[in-house]
Simulated assay, not measured.
Amino acid sequence: MLTLTNRISIAIAALLVFGMPPSQALSAAALPSTPVSDQAASALRSGNLVRLRSGGPLMTVIGIEGNRVKCVWTDADNEPESAIFSIDVLQIVIPVQTRSSERLR
């Protein structure tokens, strides 16, 4: 039986996979990102997109406690994963805005 936390993580991961148009999901590696500074860390919120400074998948923040950040993502087999990272190893990913006509395609 899955715990409530696992169920929430799976739901968020599913929203990420199915809620993002395929062109954006496939181009996630090209999104601009910035290291998490002290100022940005205070602005970091659940729902923010982040990536490890060393690279890796696009992840969604689902919780923050002190300098520890819980993130969820999907692996290569589209299986949901989650882990807790030190805020120092993350960078915020800034989504690229698209025109409304491009979102309708």
Rank of each mutant, 00 (worst) to 15 (best):
D88Q: 05
L90V: 01
A30W: 13
P80F: 08
Q91Y: 03
A28W: 08
S100T: 14
W73C: 02
R51C: 05
T5W: 02
A76N: 08
R105M: 14
E102Y: 14
V17S: 10
L90Q: 07
E65V: 10
S9E: 06
I84D: 12
R99K: 11
P32A: 07
P80E: 06
Q24H: 06
V61K: 00
V72E: 00
V50L: 12
S9D: 06
I10T: 06
T34D: 10
L16R: 09
V17W: 15
V89G: 06
S54V: 07
A43Q: 13
R45L: 14
G63E: 10
W73V: 00
Q39V: 09
W73H: 04
R68Q: 12
A28S: 14
C71W: 02
I62H: 09
P95H: 05
L15H: 04
S37Q: 08
S9P: 00
A40E: 14
T3V: 01
A40R: 07
V96G: 02
M20V: 04
S54M: 05
C71F: 00
P80Q: 07
L52R: 15
V93H: 04
L90C: 04
A13T: 09
C71M: 01
L16F: 09
V72D: 01
V96C: 07
A25M: 10
N48C: 13
R103G: 08
Q97N: 11
A43S: 09
R51G: 09
L44N: 05
D38A: 14
I8H: 04
T74C: 15
A28N: 13
Q97V: 08
L104E: 15
A76R: 03
D88T: 14
E102N: 04
P21N: 04
V93C: 15
I87G: 00
D38S: 06
L104A: 13
S23T: 13
N6S: 06
L31P: 02
P21M: 10
D77Y: 00
G56D: 01
G56R: 02
A83T: 02
V93A: 13
S101D: 14
G56M: 04
A29W: 09
P57S: 15
A30Q: 10
K70G: 03
R7F: 08
L4K: 09
L2K: 06
P22I: 07
V17K: 15
P95L: 08
V96Q: 09
V93K: 03
D75Q: 00
E79L: 14
A41C: 03
A14M: 04
D38C: 07
